[in-house]
Amino acid sequence: MAIKDYIRERFFPHMWCPGCGHGIVLNGMLRAIEVLGLNKNDIVMVSGIGCSSRISGYVDFHTLHTIHGRALAFATGVKMSRPELNLIVPMGDGDALAIGGNHFIHAARRNIDLTAIVMNNRIYGMTGGQYSPLSGYGVSATTAPYSNIDQSFDIVELARAAGATFVARTTTYHVQELSNLIQQAIVHKGFSVVEVMSQCPTYFGRKNKEGGPADMLKRMKDMTTPIGSKAKQSHTELIERGIFVQKILPEYCSEYAGIIERAMKGH
C-alpha cells in the first residue's frame, strides 16, 4: 500500500503550520507502518491534546483523541482489553511529560506494549508558545518573557529510569532514521519510547530567533550526533541519536495472561 492509503485524505491539507515538524513525524510514521505492512484494522492510535495530538485525526486507523496528558492511560485500557492490537501513542512534550508525566513513567514501569512517540518541539504550540518541561534553561517563551529558568527533562534518561524497554531518539531532519526507529519501536514487545526532536517554527523558532523551518532542521542536524560517535567526545554538548535501550523483559499483558491462567486454575 502507498502511504496515502493510511491517511484520511479528506482532511488534508492538515491544520499544522507551514514547516511544522509534526507533519514530518506523520510522514515517517506512515512509512514505518507501510514497511511493516500492518493491517489498518489492527492499529489503534491514541492521542491527547495539543498540536501533536491532532495527528490521530489524519490517519485511517481506529483513532482515539482523548484529553490532555492521559493518552497513555486510555491506551493502557485499550491494550489490556485487546492485547493483539497495535497501540501507537503520539504525544507532545508537554502532553507526555508535564500533565502526562505520571502516566508516562508508570506505563514505562509496567512495560506494557505501547509505542509512545514524543514529538518534542519544546513548546506549547496550540495555546500560543508557552514554555514546556522540555524548553530548556534560557529559552524565550510567551510565559518566559525574561527567559526560562526551568531545567528540562532528558526524555531518554527519564524513560530508561522508569523502565521502558525500548528507548530511542531522533530528529525530523533524520527522516530515514526516524522511520526506521518507529518501525523498530512498533515491533518491540514492551513499552517503547521514540523521542523525535521536532521544530515549531511558528512559536519556538520565532521567539528564539532560530529562523525558518529549514534553518531549524539544520540546527537539529548540527546539534545531534549518532550514539558513540567520535564527535561526541570532543563536543560533549552534542545530543545523541539512536537506540539507547533495547531489551526484552516480561510484557504487562503477557504477564496478566499468566495471572488469568493461575486464577482460573484456583492458583
Partner: peptide
C-alpha cells in the same frame, strides 16, 4: 488493573469500553 491514580483509572476503563 491498579492504575497510578484515579484519572488514569477512568481513562483506562473508557479505552477498554471502546473495545467492547
Amino acid at each position: 488493573i491498579q492504575m497510578e491514580d484515579e484519572i488514569a483509572s477512568i481513562c483506562a476503563i473508557i479505552g477498554a469500553s471502546l473495545t467492547g
